[in-house]
Design a protein around this nucleic acid. Structure first.
Length: 146
DNA sequence: GACTTGATTGTTTAG
DNA sequence: CTAAACAATCAAGTC
């Protein structure tokens, strides 16, 4: 499961939800071109995009690292700890993950706030909407070649 | 780059 | 335009 991670397992949450089968959206029938989005991604230039906060697993991993390091001073790389952590993580009960999820949730809340700004709501931070805003959002066009 | 899982984000698609 | 769904990308820490 090398790539497992990121790509396939994530979708898991959606499958569990199963909103409405009537939708039939299920699988997109006509994939235009695999995922041109990827290509566009390259064009996405963010002035200061907020980095993603560590998820529950990462929070647990941080703590696990310290513990694992004590018993295995020789092994520090996440590659090793991650495997052990992942194994244990699956063994842990939802209740045990709760504290970790709670922490992740908190970080997420903070992250969301940054997203508002990243969205271009700098004024939001001020709380006052007045101001001129409107017009030019990010003058990057200048560098864009058309 | 590996190696873990989770989460978030962004485009996609249909109506 | 909106809602849902999906798809891809990225997050840490050491070697």
């Amino acid at each position: 499961m090398k790539g497992a991670g990121g790509k396939g397992a994530a979708r898991n949450s959606v499958e569990a939800l199963r909103p409405v089968d009537d939708r039939k959206v299920g699988k997109r029938k006509a994939p235009v071109d695999k995922r041109q989005t990827k290509k566009d991604r390259k064009a996405m230039k963010d002035p200061n995009k907020p980095k993603r906060p560590p998820s529950a697993f990462f929070v647990f991993l941080e703590e696990f690292r310290a513990v694992f390091k004590k018993e295995n001073p020789n092994v520090k790389a996440v590659s090793a700890v991650g495997k052990a952590a992942g194994e244990k993580w699956k063994s842990m009960s939802p209740a045990d993950k709760e504290p970790y999820e709670a922490k992740a949730k908190k970080l997420k809340a903070n992250y969301e706030k940054q997203m508002d700004i990243y969205n271009g709501k700098e004024s939001a931070a001020n709380g006052e909407e007045s101001k001129s805003e409107v017009h030019d959002e990010e003058e990057e066009g200048s560098g864009e070649v058309i």
